[in-house]
Computed example of a mutant assay.
Amino acid sequence: MISLSASSFSEKNAAQFKFSRAAHHPPPSARFFSLSLPLHRRWIRAEPLSTARHPSELFEEAPSFKWVDLNEPETSREQAAAIAELPPKMTKRCRALMKQIICLSSENAGGLPLLLSAWAKAMKPRRADWLSVLKELETSDNPLFLQVFQLALLEDSFEANARDYTKIMGFLGRTGRFHDAETVFLAMQGRDLVPDQVAMTLMVNLYSKAGKFDLAKEAFEKIRLLTDDNPDKRAYGAMIMAYVRAGMAEEGEMLLREMDSREISACREVYKALLRAYAMAGDCDGAQRVFDAVQLAGVVPDARLCALLIHAYAAAGRPAAAVSALENMRAAGVQPNDKCVALTVAALRELGRLDRAMTLLADLEKDGGDVIGRETSAALASWFGQLGLSDELSGILGSS
């Protein structure tokens, strides 16, 4: 563990951390928490993020750190097993830190900043060593991974670059910690690292998912000003998704046309999101435009995209067009899924064409598809029940 000797320090000299111990809820004002290490217990004052300092400024007079390796009897069976699984090619300095982190209890997790600082002073790690430790923590799904990553960014020996910050922002964003991701983004700028298009695209995504559309749009406009180059495929896609989440599908489609004018094709998920937005709103014209754009971009529509188009026509009260969409789908060689067939059966019900529905099911069965799934069965049951033909449907389903 760590042996720490330092003279008593006052509240004025207390530690100020860049990243709050309660990272999910950064403190609006200074808070106190307990820091426990063997033979050492102090109350540390954490200042707001705006006044955070580098860990090297923890004390006015630098304390003396002494690194002491772990003794085997101090480790539990589970900890010993985790230590035994460390990569055999890992360097001794990295292995020493990993052993300490593995054996760091939840009660002593507050001592992680001092632990990393002591390791950095004693072992003189290089960037490769930090990356080796972080890779192992991520691979083993260690709960301290993000905290170690955040603290590593503050160490000079880590030689943090913009991509390190964007990586941790991505981790925080995937776990819904949008405020913390924004804090890291601001910290990156505070370290005189200029956000590039990758970082700004990530912020468009994070702001959009957090429901902050105006900030997402502002971040996208900053991408246009970063360089002489226009936004790339990812940046465009992120902003289109932001428009979709904000219920502004038409604005997203306008951005899609801008991409087409620059001969940039959006990814399938972007087309699908726009198509779904129009389909759910019953805007069959908008859905057809996006569906046509998909094909013009050279993307082969699959059954899910076709199902959204059929749904758009059905929701718009155009059952005949919904049936035609399925026929065109089959003519193009796309095998309908259960959703497509169920929507088409519902459309034929509105047209009162039971005979055509039975013909369709028979043709699909000849094509070798599993046509009567859960949704199709439910649609048929409702229709046959209304007609008083439930017994006949049982025979049809039993023979299929």
Rank of each mutant, 00 (worst) to 15 (best):
S10F: 10
D180S: 15
A293H: 11
V334G: 01
S117P: 00
A199G: 03
E392A: 10
D232G: 13
A128F: 11
L393M: 01
S50I: 12
E221F: 12
Y313W: 11
A287Q: 03
L104Q: 05
L202N: 09
L305F: 06
E60K: 08
A62I: 08
L202R: 09
H40Q: 08
M254W: 08
V371P: 00
M90I: 14
V290K: 02
E159T: 13
L49V: 15
V133A: 08
S382A: 14
L305T: 07
S400A: 13
R289L: 09
A235N: 09
F149D: 08
P301L: 02
L206S: 07
R126Q: 12
V290H: 08
A199P: 05
S157M: 02
A277L: 08
E221I: 07
P336Y: 11
Y165H: 11
S394W: 05
P38I: 01
A320T: 14
I264W: 01
K339N: 12
D232S: 09
V371W: 05
L186A: 11
A249L: 06
G110W: 00
L115A: 04
R289G: 03
L35Q: 00
S377R: 13
W130Y: 14
G317C: 04
T51E: 11
K135L: 10
Q189G: 13
D69P: 06
G282Q: 01
E392D: 13
R224M: 08
Y313K: 01
N205Y: 05
S261I: 04
R95Y: 06
T51H: 06
A96D: 01
I310E: 04
E138Q: 15
S157C: 02
R330Q: 12
P143Y: 04
E61A: 13
M203T: 04
N337L: 03
S5T: 07
K12S: 13
L153T: 10
L326K: 01
R224D: 02
C267H: 14
L274R: 12
E78Q: 13
S377F: 09
K222N: 10
F213E: 03
C94L: 00
P48D: 03
F213W: 12
V270G: 06
G395N: 12
Y165P: 10
V290I: 14
S36R: 12
V299K: 07
S105P: 00
T344W: 04
A162R: 15
S20C: 14
A293F: 07
T359P: 01
D292K: 13
A281P: 06
L361V: 02
L153W: 03
L275I: 09
V341G: 04
A96W: 02
G247F: 11
R318D: 12
E327A: 10
F32V: 14
S29L: 12
M200G: 04
K121D: 11
I372N: 05
A109M: 14
A242S: 09
S5A: 09
A235W: 05
E159H: 09
E85R: 11
W130D: 03
A332F: 03
Y236H: 11
V334D: 08
K233D: 00
M169W: 02
L326I: 02
A293L: 10
D232R: 10
V345S: 03
L151M: 07
A128R: 10
H40M: 08
P88A: 13
D370E: 14
G252W: 04
K18L: 10
R126Y: 09
P28I: 10
E60Q: 11
K121L: 10
V270E: 00
R21G: 14
A242Q: 08
Y271F: 15
D363L: 11
